[in-house]
Write a protein that binds this DNA or RNA. Sequence first.
DNA 1: TTCGTCATGTAATGGGTTACATGATTAC
DNA 2: GTAATCATGTAACCCATTACATGACGAA
Lengths: 208, 208
Amino acid sequence: MAGKKGAGVLELAVLGLLHESPMHGYELRKRLNALLGMFRAFSYGSLYPCLKQLLTSGLIVEDRPEEPNVALALQSRRSKIVYKLTADGKERLQQLLTEAGPASWEDEGFGVHFAFFSHTRADVRLRILEGRRSRLEERLESVRAALARTRERVDSYTLELQNHGLESVEREVRWLSELIGRERAEQEQQAHRSSSLTSQDMPRETDR
Amino acid sequence: MAGKKGAGVLELAVLGLLHESPMHGYELRKRLNALLGMFRAFSYGSLYPCLKQLLTSGLIVEDRPEEPNVALALQSRRSKIVYKLTADGKERLQQLLTEAGPASWEDEGFGVHFAFFSHTRADVRLRILEGRRSRLEERLESVRAALARTRERVDSYTLELQNHGLESVEREVRWLSELIGRERAEQEQQAHRSSSLTSQDMPRETDR
DNA sequence: TTCGTCATGTAATGGGTTACATGATTAC
DNA sequence: GTAATCATGTAACCCATTACATGACGAA
């Protein structure tokens, strides 16, 4: 009853965006696709059912701004349904942002998790980044191995594709390494700053 | 009942690999994931049903090599089921490789189509490459627009993600442009070679 | 008044995964 | 003889898409 399966990436994305500001579905989708446009695009056919489900789960509520403008009020056939997070929703979001597992570093989920890193605990951020990096490195290794095995007898297009893929992933690995470096530096600074306390518990770096 | 819906990308990938050489399922999957490892990975749960469907469609057949080695023959409990293309299968493959449409340049399909470019007509190759490039350019533009619109009030992680995405896509666009250039040069050479024929009707066979 | 965009939804479908179940072959 | 890997399959489920249907609103 409690921790049912959510709508995957979408749930997190929706909760995350709604946390920043209440919105209606149409706008939500635009922001969604602007945010993740490079990686994926969602359609209404998945968004609205997701919103519905979040509603019935009590994670969001419809928030109709109740125009004080009486003139408009009478013919306010509802269009625009603005959604906002409930307390439960915020809690759920926090929970989703705290679990650093495959879901957060695999291809589908990484982008979304990363997009909301500013609401994520520093140690979780680090583990996600490292998780993704080692995932990509595994992939590199296995593809490189396969490439070496079939060195001969590959046509040029296949080779071209492999190489481009390889380079793309290598590039992402470098990017991740850079980010990891920054994160670690920040953590050390943090630790340094609070070195007057016991140096082993450094829990509080809430959000920016 | 001729041209029903196939198993998406998998169908093409399987037909393409089997065209190069007959194989059994397990090996097929390995080659598949070696070939496309950077982009996607298939599981047996999708591969075997796909093979089954291709069998019943008559596009592939089981090819049990019937060992002439009599000593082994008696205890040849079948493991390894080797599949190979039928004539229909080759035709179907050719058909799949000839259609240059969204399916061939959208994210899911592009890699697979590209991987078998050496079996693809030159003009189709060009149209697919151009299709993908313009698709990516659309994406770039829309994301850049969104980025410009929300210039302020973006947190640094989101910005970082957007930028990385942008650069990745820009990189792919450059790669595509390079390939397109090569393809065009090749086509011109080809045209040049046959310039002894009517020299005036060659300027633009790249319709569209 | 009509067209394009904003806005909300649903039903059918689809392509694929996970987890499971089973057995053969190889290496130690 | 036992563990790892090779090898084949199935059933249940999942997340999301496509295509469809509806209607409000602003601008031409």
